[in-house]
Structures are given as C-alpha cells and as structure tokens.
C-alpha cells in the first residue's frame, strides 16, 4: 500500500510552475502553493527530525499551529513551510534537530 508520495497535484496549474530545490535536488512545482504542499507532493516524507528524540516529523496541521513542518529555507532555519509560498530558486533543506547558529565573519572578529 506504500506509495512514493503522500499527496499529488493532478490538475495543471494556471499560475505556471517554479523550480525549487530540496536537499539540492530540483523540484518543479506549481506556483503559488505553500512550501509544505510542494514538498509533500514532491515526495518528501520527513521534513525535520525532532529536537528531543530525533524521530522523523512531517506537517500535521498545515495552518501554522503545530510547528511540525519546520525546514531550512534559503539558509534560514526552522521556518514554517506551511505558511510560506514557494518562490523560484528557493533552496530548502530538512531541519535536523536543533537550530545551529551560523557565525558570520563579522561576528567572530
């Protein structure tokens, strides 16, 4: 009964398509949908791992309440992918465990 994706988007999109990447792999997705919807339809099953037990997690509520859909978007960690629309060129990665602060050159000087 297992399928490759939880969801699929059968209808053609009037708004066109954009290309995003997930873990470096390109995904062509309908424009105007949320990052979470795009990833679910793109076959992503695990969005993040729990900061406590490390177990796999994926969106539960799709409306900004549960914080299960957190991913890294364009280098910014722990973003709610259900609230953010896809944009051309968006680079998305799994949120593995807790957020790691990125020390920039200016911050350690």
């Amino acid at each position: 009964m297992a399928t490759d994706t939880f969801f699929s988007i059968p209808e053609p999109s009037a708004a066109g398509r954009v290309t995003i990447t997930f873990e470096g792999e390109p995904l062509s997705v309908p424009a105007g949908i949320s990052v979470a919807a795009a990833l679910l339809a793109g076959g992503v099953k695990t969005f993040r791992s729990s900061v406590v037990g490390g177990g796999p997690r994926a969106p539960y509520c799709m409306m900004g309440v549960c914080f299960e859909c957190l991913v890294e978007i364009d280098g910014v960690p722990a973003r709610q992918s259900c609230l953010i629309p896809v944009r051309e060129g968006m680079a998305i990665r799994r949120q593995i465990g807790a957020v790691e602060l990125q020390f920039g050159a200016g911050e350690e000087a």
């Binding site: 399928t3 490759d4 969801f7 999109s13």
Partner: peptide, 11 residues
C-alpha cells in the same frame, strides 16, 4: 487545506 490551496490529493 492542501486540497484548497494546492489541489493536492492523496496519492
């Protein structure tokens, strides 16, 4: 919400 927002249906 996935259906409304993206036309997504269970695979």
């Amino acid at each position: 919400i996935l259906l409304k927002g993206a036309g997504a249906m269970p695979s």
